[in-house]
């Protein structure tokens, strides 16, 4: 399938799952399971950094318009879009892996653990920035940290399930072409 079309479909699928399935779930009145930002984690390696941030901004703004609170998710998404290239540079195993594969996955990161560190780090950043913006007036650090950590764990669990259900074929492209 065309890469652009695939990502557009993914964009809408993520928003719909987030708004109509996960937003209806409330675990222990504290955790909201977030999964929509996996769209940002899965964007191709070669995407322009400016474009990456603009696409992420629109992803967040779309979710915000469903929730009638403009700005919150947009800000968090732009933050992880900005940080993403740095994390990829740190976590990619050997020189050239990002040219051999299209997009971040367990295979292109060379193992489950580096991939989940990459995902987990960006998720913590997203959640922390989002909850910080939401909290604004309520200074309760203990609640804030617990909420961030637990929400991230739930998101990681969801990511693991998604990776197992929807196996993404990753073609190995040699860079000798």
């Amino acid at each position: 399938m065309n890469k652009l079309l695939k990502n557009i479909l993914r964009f809408f699928a993520m928003i719909f799952v987030q708004v109509f399935v996960l937003d209806k779930i409330l675990l222990h009145q504290m955790i909201t399971p977030y999964i929509y930002f996996v769209f940002i984690l899965w964007l191709p390696f070669k995407i322009n950094r400016g474009l990456l941030m603009i696409v992420s901004f629109f992803l967040g703004a779309t979710l915000d318009s469903f929730r009638h609170n403009p700005g919150f998710h947009a800000a968090a998404c732009v933050l992880i879009a900005y940080i993403r290239p740095f994390v990829i540079n740190l976590m990619i195993p050997q020189e050239g892996s990002e040219t051999n594969y299209d997009e971040p996955s367990i295979k292109s990161f060379g193992g489950v653990i580096p991939y989940f560190i990459y995902a987990g780090f960006l998720m913590i950043l997203h959640n922390a920035w989002l909850f910080l913006l939401e909290a604004w007036q309520f200074a309760d650090p203990y609640y804030f940290f617990l909420k961030t950590i637990l929400s991230t764990l739930i998101s990681l669990l969801l990511l693991l399930i998604i990776e197992m259900i929807f196996y993404r074929k990753q073609k190995f492209r040699t860079n000798t072409v």
């Binding site: 400016g50 941030m53 603009i54 403009p70 700005g71 919150f72 947009a74 800000a75 732009v78 933050l79």
Partner: peptide
């Protein structure tokens, strides 16, 4: 700069 301006725009919306 793009990052900062998008962040500021989001916070402005909030």
């Amino acid at each position: 700069l793009l990052f900062l301006s998008l962040q500021i725009f989001s916070v402005y919306l909030i």
